[in-house]
């Protein structure tokens, strides 16, 4: 899919061609031309170099690593790394959001990862990059699968022995999926 170097070479070449045309065509178009093109200093890298560095996980599973985990395995991970702040059942504590339980139809509504989030992928993405707050990115990919399975289980979304992995995670149906109205084209 990628054709390394070609674009890079051609953009450098373009800059030279521009300089030439400037010399010939006078200064009128200088500002427009310079703004649209840079000196081409980007250093080519290969996607493979970003393994373990790129943590983005999309709803369709793009970006999920190898490995797997169940809620049964995740309970220990959760109780050791998360429960002190988020509570044994994911009920949250002062200044820390609840992760499970809650409903959007109560007054006031309680929006948790279980009751509100549209995709399970967001749990994997967020826990891996940001939790626990004092040691983010310290859990292994497998531990993240396990603890995410446990959080989903706390809300009753998956069974205790459900195997969460690259293939199954995008299939997990979140209770509130389908209730988000995409406003991205209102700009």
């Amino acid at each position: 899919m990628f054709t390394p170097d070609r674009k890079h070479v051609s953009s450098r070449f373009k800059s030279k061609a521009l300089l030439l045309s400037l010399a010939v065509g006078g200064l009128l178009s200088v500002s427009a031309v310079m703004a649209a093109d840079g000196p081409g200093l980007g250093k080519p890298i290969d996607e493979s170099q970003l393994q373990g560095w790129d943590l983005i996980v999309q709803p369709d599973g793009t970006g999920l690593p190898e490995g797997s985990g169940t809620a049964a395995q995740g309970q220990a991970v959760y109780e050791q790394n998360c429960a002190a702040c988020h509570g044994m059942k994911g009920e949250g504590s002062s200044g820390v959001p609840a992760l499970a339980g809650g409903s959007l139809t109560t007054t006031p509504p309680l929006m948790t990862a279980g009751s509100y989030w549209p995709y399970a992928s967001t749990l994997y993405d967020y826990v891996r990059r940001a939790m626990p707050p004092l040691a983010p990115k310290s859990l292994s990919n497998t531990e993240v699968y396990q603890v995410v399975a446990y959080v989903l289980h706390l809300h009753g979304i998956v069974e205790r022995d459900f195997v969460l992995d690259r293939a199954s995670l995008p299939q997990v149906k979140m209770p509130n999926s389908g209730n988000f109205i995409d406003r991205s084209q209102v700009q």
């Binding site: 990628f2 674009k7 080519p44 970003l50 790129d54």
Partner: peptide, 13 residues
């Protein structure tokens, strides 16, 4: 790092 759906992933200092 600029990457993903691009012809050539690049890194800038």
């Amino acid at each position: 790092v600029l990457h993903g759906m691009v012809r050539q992933p690049l890194e800038f200092s």
